[in-house]
């Protein structure tokens, strides 16, 4: 038990340090941008004003509100203090909306879209990869190149293709948004139906892209395991092949959990871009509009949230993996 605690302790400290570094990067990098967004927003507000001192006044007021008149390190401390309370400041581009407000309305969509899509893609990919490894010959000859090809279609490419085929041409599913644009979010059956039909295309585009990569990885893991000595030994003890295949896939699948943890950052990047293609009301689209409007409070908050989500998922997967794979348990916990 002491081993477990030490393992967790180490992991938690490690993730906290990573978190701090992520916060620092997320705060400072966007603020290094040469443009002056306060001037831009003042220009927008003060358009048509002729009185220079009034414009100056507005500029000062915004500078105060966004805190850009203070030195960078003070801004950072203020940012941290507010961030702990869940306050990420005010958005430049959607003034006077709060950043936390914008993100709050987007994050649910992203999580509801990406988490199931990545899990389904992972599962299907692993099953296909295992099949390819077990059946070999014909299946493998078809599945392998197809999976490899699929895994190389960029997420946005898959999104566009699905959108054009099933949205524009076949008109099976709507092509943009998270629900019908003339609806107000509520809990009615109609609204849920609309959400579900808007969900399909972004969901499957992420699933299809993640299947390929996982299948290729699972195939080579399974082939490696199928050649392991314990397979031969179990066969010579008279154990049925179907049972042995069970051992093999369990052993091959467990490391795939780490594979998922390591690739989740990359997968989310692709999936966020897929959101933009479908104008899905999630963090990807939020980030897109923030980037186009040079809205750095929104950019740093969005990237921070994404980083935190990836960190959390990676952390959870690490912990789960440590528990269910005795190979790691033996190596780490003693």
């Amino acid at each position: 038990m002491k081993g477990y605690r030490k393992y967790f302790g180490k992991k938690i400290i490690w993730f906290l340090i990573t978190f701090v570094i992520a916060v620092i990067l997320n705060f400072f990098l966007p603020r290094l941008m040469p443009a002056d967004p306060v001037a831009a927003i003042t220009g927008k507000m003060a358009s048509g004003m002729t009185d220079a001192s009034a414009v100056q006044e507005i500029y000062k007021r915004y500078e105060e509100e966004f805190g850009t008149n203070k030195p960078m390190w003070q801004q950072f401390l203020l940012f941290c203090k507010n961030a702990i309370r869940g306050d990420f400041g005010t958005s430049f581009s959607q003034y006077p909306r709060k950043v936390s407000d914008i993100i709050g309305s987007a994050i649910g969509w992203t999580i509801a879209l990406q988490l199931p899509a990545i899990i389904v893609g992972w599962l299907l990919g692993n099953i296909l990869g295992a099949l390819a490894a077990y059946l070999r010959k014909g299946w493998d000859k078809v599945l392998m190149p197809v999976s490899l090809f699929m895994s190389n279609v960029p997420a946005f490419g898959m999104a566009v293709i699905l959108l054009v085929v099933f949205g524009v041409n076949l008109k099976w599913f709507p092509i943009a948004g998270g629900y019908n644009f003339d609806m107000i979010p509520n809990l009615s059956w109609n609204f849920i139906k609309s959400v579900i039909s808007h969900y399909q295309l972004p969901f499957w585009s992420i699933v299809l892209v993640s299947i390929g990569g996982q299948a290729v990885g699972m195939r080579s893991m399974s082939i490696y395991e199928l050649n392991a000595d314990y397979v031969k030994y179990a066969r010579f003890l008279g154990i049925k092949d179907s049972k042995i295949v069970g051992y093999v896939f369990r052993n091959a699948m467990l490391p795939q959990i780490t594979g998922l943890a390591l690739s989740i950052g990359t997968m989310i990047g692709g999936a966020l871009v897929a959101e933009i293609i479908f104008s899905y009301p999630g963090l990807g689209s939020t980030m897109y509009s923030a980037v186009t409007a040079a809205d750095y409070p929104l950019i740093s908050a969005t990237t921070l949230i994404i980083t935190v989500m990836v960190l959390l998922v990676t952390f959870l997967l690490d912990i789960v993996y440590g528990f269910i794979d005795p190979r790691v348990k033996a190596a780490q916990f003693d």
Binding site: D229, Y230, F236, N251
Partner: peptide, 13 residues
């Protein structure tokens, strides 16, 4: 049968 590489003869998980 007791295999040559008994080190790896048991399913690790």
């Amino acid at each position: 049968y007791i295999p040559q590489a008994a080190m790896n003869a048991l399913n690790p998980t």
